[in-house]
Design a protein around this nucleic acid. Structure first.
Length: 399
DNA sequence: AGGTATTCACATGAAACTATTCTCTGAGTTAGG
DNA sequence: TAACTCAGAGAATAGTTTCATGTGAATACCTGT
C-alpha cells in the first residue's frame, strides 16, 4: 500500500503541469495589468500629490467583482510606496478589506486592523471605540506624513455599520490631524449603496471617481493568456482559454472567476497526471466550483439553517414551488421532533434569503392578491447534489 | 360595466434584547522583608 | 509594602426577538347607466 502511495506522490512531483500556480491565485499581482491602463494612469495622476506630501483628493472606485479594482489599486500603491521610499518621503498606504469577517467588518475592527498595520497591538474587544480613534490619531499624527487609507469592499461596510465611521475618518482630516494628512480611497462593488450614505460623506468621498467596466470575452482572453504563460509549464491551447473566458464573460466579465476556473481545471488535470490542460477539464472545473460552493455551505452552516433547508428539500419532493408559510410550518414540526426551540418567522425569512444568495433556491416575492403577499420558493440544486446533502443532514441532524 | 376601496399574508426595516467575550480597575489577600 | 487575585463594571459583537410599517393585486363594494 505505502509503495503505491509513494508512487502517487512521486509522479505528482514530476508530473505537475504548473510552473507557478501562484500566478492564478487571486492575490497575485502580475507585472502588467492588461486593459486597465487608463484607470491606472488616472489613479496615478490623482494620487501623485501625495509624493509631495500634499493631500490628494479622496478617490472612489467602483465596478463589479473581478474587474481589477483591488489589483490596480495595489499596483499603484506599490509603485507609489516604492517611489516614496526612494525619495525618503513619509507616505504610508493602509489597506483594509471591510468584508473580511472577524477582521474588519465593524467600526471597531476596522480601527483595530489599521492600528495593527501601524504596528500596535489592540485587544479584540473591551475598549471603547473612541479610544481606538485617539490611538490612531496619535500614531499617524506624530510626524509630518501622508497616509492613504484604502477601504476595500466599502459598500459592505456601510451596509453593516452605516456611513458614520466614514464621516469620522473624513472629519479627522480637518479637525484632529495637525501634522499629517490623510486621504481615503473607497472601493465598492455596487453603486446603489451610495443612496444610504450621508450626503456630506458622499460628496467628500467621491471628490474623484473611477469606473471599472467589466471585461469582455476578448479582454478576459488576454488576461488569461498572460497568466497562463506564467502559471503552466506547457502552452495552454487557445481553445481552452477561449472556453474559460466565455464561461466568465457569460456572467459579468469576472476575471477572478475566470482565473479560478483555469486554476481548478489545472488542478484537476494534474490529479489525472495529465501534462496538458485540455477542454473537458474546464467543464469539470465549473462543476466542481458549483458543487464545492453548495456543499461547503451546507456542511458548515449552523444547525437552524440546516433544519430550514431540510424543510425546503422535503417540500420540494412533492411540490415544485411553495411559500414561506409552508416552509415555516414544516420547520416548526422538525424543531419539535428535534427538541429545538423554533426561531421566529422573521428569522426564517432571513435564512431563506441567505440560501438564495448561495444559489440553493430561487426566491421571488409575489402577490396573491386577496390572499396576501408572500415569497415563492423553488429549490435549485442539482439533483445529484441533493443526495449528498441528504447524507450530510442525516449525519448532523439525524433526519 | 367600470371604478374605487379593502384586505390578506407576508416582506422589510428598525430597535431592543440576550448572551458571550474581552479589558480595566480597584478592593482584598498574600508573602516576604 | 509590593505583588497578586479576583469580582464587577463597561464595551463590542452576534444572533435573535419585538414592534412597526409597507405592499401588490384579487376581491368586495359602489355607482351610475
Amino acid at each position: 500500500m505505502s509503495v503505491k502511495i509513494d508512487k502517487i506522490f512521486d509522479s505528482f512531483n514530476n508530473n505537475t503541469i504548473f510552473k507557478n500556480k501562484l500566478a492564478l491565485q487571486t492575490n497575485y499581482t502580475p507585472e502588467t495589468i492588461p486593459h486597465r491602463d487608463q484607470q491606472i494612469e488616472q489613479m496615478a495622476k490623482i494620487l501623485s500629490p501625495s509624493l509631495r506630501l500634499e493631500r490628494p483628493s479622496n478617490l472612489f472606485l467602483y465596478g463589479k467583482t473581478g474587474t481589477g479594482k483591488t489589483l490596480s489599486t495595489r499596483y499603484v500603491a506599490n509603485k507609489l510606496a516604492e517611489r516614496a521610499g526612494k525619495e525618503n518621503k513619509r507616505l504610508s498606504i493602509l489597506f483594509v478589506n471591510c468584508k473580511l469577517k472577524k477582521v474588519a467588518d465593524t467600526e471597531y475592527r476596522v480601527l483595530a486592523e489599521l492600528l495593527r498595520q501601524l504596528g500596535q497591538d489592540v485587544p479584540a474587544t473591551g475598549l471603547p471605540t473612541d479610544q481606538l480613534y485617539n490611538k490612531f490619531i496619535k500614531s499617524i499624527d506624530n510626524s509630518e506624513q501622508m497616509t492613504i487609507l484604502v477601504f476595500d469592499e466599502i459598500d459592505e461596510a456601510i451596509e453593516k455599520m452605516g456611513s458614520g465611521f466614514l464621516y469620522r475618518f473624513i472629519r479627522l482630516n480637518d479637525s484632529d490631524l495637525t501634522k499629517s494628512k490623510m486621504s481615503i480611497i473607497g472601493i465598492a462593488n455596487n453603486l446603489n449603496f451610495l443612496d444610504k450614505v450621508d450626503i456630506r460623506v458622499r460628496s467628500s468621498l467621491s471628490e474623484e471617481e473611477l469606473v471599472f467596466p467589466p471585461y469582455d470575452a476578448a479582454q478576459l482572453q488576454d488576461i488569461l493568456n498572460e497568466r497562463a504563460k506564467e502559471a503552466f509549464k506547457a502552452k495552454v491551447e487557445d481553445g481552452v482559454i477561449a472556453k474559460c473566458s466565455a464561461f466568465a464573460a457569460k456572467g459579468h466579465g469576472d476575471a477572478r472567476r475566470a482565473l479560478d476556473l483555469l486554476r481548478i481545471a489545472g488542478e484537476l488535470a494534474e490529479r489525472d497526471f495529465k501534462k496538458k490542460l485540455t477542454f473537458e477539464y474546464i467543464d469539470k472545473a465549473n462543476d466542481k466550483i458549483e458543487r464545492d460552493k453548495t456543499l461547503d455551505f451546507v456542511s458548515t452552516c449552523p444547525e437552524q439553517h440546516k433544519i430550514v433547508l431540510q424543510a425546503i428539500i422535503t417540500l420540494s419532493e412533492t411540490k415544485e414551488e411553495f411559500f414561506t408559510n409552508d416552509v415555516y410550518e414544516l420547520y416548526e414540526k422538525l424543531c419539535m421532533k428535534l427538541n429545538e426551540k423554533p426561531r421566529t418567522q422573521r428569522m426564517i425569512g432571513e435564512y431563506i434569503r441567505e440560501f438564495e444568495t448561495y444559489g440553493l433556491i430561487n426566491f421571488k416575492v409575489i402577490s396573491r392578491g386577496r390572499y396576501g403577499r408572500t415569497a415563492e420558493i423553488k429549490l435549485s440544486i442539482y439533483p445529484h447534489l441533493i443526495v449528498r446533502i441528504r447524507e450530510i443532514m442525516k449525519e448532523s441532524l439525524g433526519l
